[in-house]
């Protein structure tokens, strides 16, 4: 089982769109896949027409006192399941603090699915906190959508610093350019000569595409309702990049 997170401290960079589309692509290829919507805003759950609600609230679930398996919902797509968001996830740090090994809890919870799913995608909330530490611990790879702008790259360096400070494995970090617009000079410059610290930069960038915004109206992954859209084709290429990178990891 490979656990792949879409993560960034910054909001609105395309984390959910990436998680939703890549998860759908994985399942379409025949791999049993789970997507866990960890963001209290519940956008991934919304895209799949699933209520962002956990019976009994998120606390018991996170602390392992309620069966995680019972909260899983099947999506409209074969082999793709979703663990919905819950508004109480805004307090996830507090829930995690109440466990024996707070930074290890997500890993512990996910272990039970190792025979059931081939991929687990974690759609993460935009912050750097105990939740993020759990994500760094539990994942095989962390996809970091990055807009080719100064501020966006600055947040990436903040993540890197956090990793270095806590002696975490930076090879897990897979940045990729997202919402790119080659008409903008800054985007062009940053994409053509990427900064040195973007070590595992994925070769595929996801262009800005108004079709991605329509996911909310269709309530479905882009690769499903507009498979020929530019961004949809790029998601497919990105998924191939991610697969080939993660297959080399131990």
């Amino acid at each position: 089982m490979k656990v792949i997170a879409t993560y960034n401290i910054k909001g609105g960079v395309g984390k959910t769109a990436t998680a939703v589309n890549l998860a759908r692509l994985a399942a379409r290829e025949g791999a049993p896949t789970l997507i866990w919507d960890l963001d209290p805003q519940g956008a991934a759950s919304y895209y799949f027409r699933i209520k962002p609600k956990i019976k009994g609230g998120g606390k018991k679930l996170i602390q392992g006192k309620r069966n995680l398996e019972r909260s899983i919902r099947g999506t409209d797509f074969e082999l793709l399941d979703l663990l919905p968001a819950d508004f109480s996830y805004r307090n996830m740090d507090i829930f995690l603090e109440g466990t024996k090994k707070p930074s290890h809890q997500l890993y512990k919870l996910l272990r039970q699915f190792k025979n059931e799913y081939e991929y687990v995608f974690l759609d993460c909330p935009p912050s750097i906190s105990l939740v993020s530490e759990n994500i760094f611990d539990a994942t095989t790879a962390i996809l970091v959508p990055t807009i080719p702008t100064t501020l966006s790259l600055r947040t990436y360096t903040q993540i890197l610093q956090f990793f270095n400070k806590h002696d975490l494995d930076t090879t897990k970090l897979l940045p990729f350019f997202c919402m790119t617009d080659r008409r903008k000079k800054m985007h062009r410059t940053m994409m053509d000569s990427p900064a040195e610290y973007l070590k595992n930069l994925m070769p595929t960038a996801i262009p800005y595409d108004s079709k991605v915004e329509q996911m909310g109206a269709h309530r479905a992954p882009l690769v499903e309702f507009a498979p020929n859209a530019r961004a949809a084709r790029c998601y497919e290429a990105l998924w191939n990049d991610v697969k080939s990178y993660t297959s080399q990891l131990k």
């Binding site: 025949g30 049993p32 082999l79």
Partner: peptide
């Protein structure tokens, strides 16, 4: 979970890696 394949495997070891 059910498995989608291009062709029917002859032996268990012909299946793709996974549960």
């Amino acid at each position: 979970p059910r498995m989608k394949l291009r062709e029917m495997p002859k032996f268990a070891w012909d299946l793709p890696k996974g549960p």
